[in-house]
Write a protein that binds this DNA or RNA. Structure first.
Lengths: 66, 66
DNA sequence: TAAAAATGTAAAATATGCTTGACATAATGA
DNA sequence: TCATTATGTCAAGCATATTTTACATTTTTA
């Protein structure tokens, strides 16, 4: 699964720590999702989508291998 | 987190087992998500949304407690 | 250039997703 | 009614998500 977190953060000028605070997870969690180390829960992706005001599908997209 | 899986399945006339087959998980996984026993991964919710042709946000919605 | 902020990782611990197998009950259909 | 299909749930086990702590490196800014 690909994600656009880095780009969305840049658009809103948010650091990984800022974003983590906003949705109530650790900074490492954001970093790990962003670098593809793991797949977030649906609750997390809904919250991320909410922060950026965009649909989940715009931020996370399935790949062949998923 | 609430979900509309039961309703969406009814609209498409799919059993839990049918749906499970379509996205490659076990029947119990579908049942457990449907009855709120656990929160699916984002990959799973993207696949479910894809099957029903609707955005993730239409199928899963955050609650106060999330 | 020096200090501060941001990012990338790692390890260990705990929590949770998801599987298989199994069984009980409810609903559907011949 | 009998058989089949659908649903709910449990338990054990493995895999993965997420946390905390910690440290190194990169980037930004004064």
């Amino acid at each position: 699964m690909k994600n656009r977190l880095k780009v969305e953060r840049a658009e809103q000028n948010l650091s990984q720590a800022d974003l983590a605070d906003r949705i109530g997870v650790s900074r490492q969690t954001i970093n790990s999702i962003e670098t593809g180390r793991y797949v977030p829960s649906t609750i997390l992706s809904l919250k991320l989508a909410q922060v950026f005001g965009k649909p989940v599908e715009h931020i996370f997209t399935l790949e062949e291998t998923d």
